[in-house]
Design a protein around this nucleic acid. Sequence first.
DNA 1: ACAATTCCTCTCACGCTGAGATTAATTCGT
DNA 2: ACGAATTAATCTCAGCGTGAGAGGAATTGT
Lengths: 417, 417
Amino acid sequence: MATTSLPRTSNRSAVLAALLSGTEMDRQQLISDTGLSRATVFRIVDDLMAESLVREGARVLRDGPGRQSTSVAFDDRSALVCGIDLGGTNCRVVVADALGRAVIRSRDATPRDAGADELAAWVAGRVADLVARYGDGVPLTTVTIGLPGVVTGDGRSVVASHNLGQITGTRFIEAVSARFGVPTVVGNDSNLALLGELQYGSLPERETAVLLAMGTGLGSAVSLDGRVLVGRTGLLGEFGRLPLPGRDQRLRDLLSGADLVAYARGRGADVPTAQALFAEPEKHADLLAEVHGALTHLVTVVALAYEPGTVVLTGGFSESFGAARLAEISDRVAEAVGVRSVVRRADLGDSAGLLGSMASSLGRYYESLGVSTAHAASVAVDRDLVVGRLDACPTAPGAAGHDATTRTTHDDQMAEG
Amino acid sequence: MATTSLPRTSNRSAVLAALLSGTEMDRQQLISDTGLSRATVFRIVDDLMAESLVREGARVLRDGPGRQSTSVAFDDRSALVCGIDLGGTNCRVVVADALGRAVIRSRDATPRDAGADELAAWVAGRVADLVARYGDGVPLTTVTIGLPGVVTGDGRSVVASHNLGQITGTRFIEAVSARFGVPTVVGNDSNLALLGELQYGSLPERETAVLLAMGTGLGSAVSLDGRVLVGRTGLLGEFGRLPLPGRDQRLRDLLSGADLVAYARGRGADVPTAQALFAEPEKHADLLAEVHGALTHLVTVVALAYEPGTVVLTGGFSESFGAARLAEISDRVAEAVGVRSVVRRADLGDSAGLLGSMASSLGRYYESLGVSTAHAASVAVDRDLVVGRLDACPTAPGAAGHDATTRTTHDDQMAEG
DNA sequence: ACAATTCCTCTCACGCTGAGATTAATTCGT
DNA sequence: ACGAATTAATCTCAGCGTGAGAGGAATTGT
């Protein structure tokens, strides 16, 4: 019901969105950015300062005569948000300030043998510890967890997980939400990786894009017009399950690390890892042709299904495809079905999922402040700054209580998707 | 810019949306429906009456004591809208009042030999004639044309058409828009058919749905959350182009009327039409198994791509699949990939495209009145009434000037998609 | 005819916005 | 050092739209 206060909240949202870029601004600049009147902007900024969401910035010197304006800035100490990438091998955590600038991050071996409750307690405890030690008293407001499994559209249940069985069902999600005590959302890791690429990678935010997560499994994520699609049961985009007509195989039998090794053995090529196949291209020419054909077919399917501007590949298995090979696939798809999509590797590498989880948390925090989705979409984030801060921010020492001995970076990459 | 007048337009939109159901209403009912105050509702209704968008209705008798309320109703004579289904064989037109109730419809043989300009002039002239003769002086406001071809996302160009070559490019669209002189939009006929099914069929409006248009060609349309997807170049969902891995065929070679006949001949089955294959299932068992396999694969692809609640089939070719067969396909897909979608024939038959075009025109007319999309989605339309009126409304005599001799209903069905 | 009931019209206060006037701070010129 | 010029911040006020209530108008029952 459109009450009188509707413009107020909308204007507040516009001012907040302008400030969320993180840059210290003039009130004058807010006036011209939002198109609102002086009086309105001053009132809203006063309100925001009273809520201590906005603080006075250092004075910006202007060379002409006249009174100097006192600049204002969004208070990055108003809240902390948390993004988690819970993989089958490693669990990565980032805690960031209200502007998405990483404060602390960690990387621990996932306690894969733990049950649902135990795992939930471990994750929540780890984050609580990080916040307590490095959060400087700023409260944690929102948490997002990327999971290697099929998450239903309502985010209440995990349908299947190929390498972390204890998270299936509702128990883990309920337990971890209860432990955190702040709004906690779980999502599919591929979907969150795509969100990360959209927010902090070089993907145009409004362009249709598809992410193919090629690790031990094969997952994918789709964004249309800036929104990441989520099906009812979360199976949307699970093209790994697609049977190939005329043969007794699914797409993932050829395009996921785990299954390809098994298939290669069946064909007489006894290799330890999928990468080993690509290391000797002449020796395994037939097999590799099949793999390339399967990837071409997968790209063809997503090209027709979504007509994406870009298809990005992540995950350890995707490293086996060079840029030239991907360009060739793009050409073949364009020739076959008329849809031209750029096919390339993702920008953010294995940090995409972590950054996507953080972006999701950040988005929900902004929403809780009253930023409308329309305004949120127009927030100009400094991508390089955020990504750089993630790389540069301190890494917390390993978790106590659980042995985090075997940390193989390589395995973790393969566990994506 | 959120100005002060924002609530005004929003409230006006809410009142209009409540009235657009077409039922005569009390002002009191408007108050409770919209949640607005008495004064506001009265003012808005006064405004709408001054614009003659709303008229006084017949008095509704209430049995108790007290003053009788004068009911109001949206004025169905405020405007006419037009929906056109321009097929390769037939061209159907419906002119409807502002509530979507058909006033007049026509069905003529499409002048397939006409050039772009000539065809545009013919279509526009036909509609102008209908409006002049049966429109009772009510002005035509919006036109939507469904075309059997790939229409780009901006609606400015036709990329390809398998049975109406002269509409390709921008010339036809520009010519027809200029001739009409009112806002004219063109769209892919499959997309508009899905819109028709969503608005006036039994598809839940917010549920994800896929329409497979199986006629001479093979097209499809997808709606997510009530919105029909349109790709940049309009190739989104053109799964007919999907190559089948391991064989030198595309999906449409097996699933479109025209191509299946050619394929059957190549396999030694010399049949005149695709239907003839299905008439003798034992004789063509192998071929039919291939066709069923292809359809199963197509449903599998769309099931994974969009996770639809329902997959509806339209077009002459779809008649060859019985309900039992479709249920079996649904089962096989659910078993293979875990996505359960209802697979069935469409409700509206070959009128879906026409109704979808009309719905599109109607929607744009409502938008021009200031009904926000949020409110438009909640308009309760009486589906049976609208569909019934289309069937019952008078049909104009055939077009003069062009020979409309051969009107084979069957051919037209095959031309869908 | 009169009360009771219900619908409609009128008036007014509230909240928010935007425009202008006023005050405060700062630079430049003399 | 002091005032003119310039720019930022504050103050005041009218306009707009809404919602709430008071009063008038129409209709039914006794």
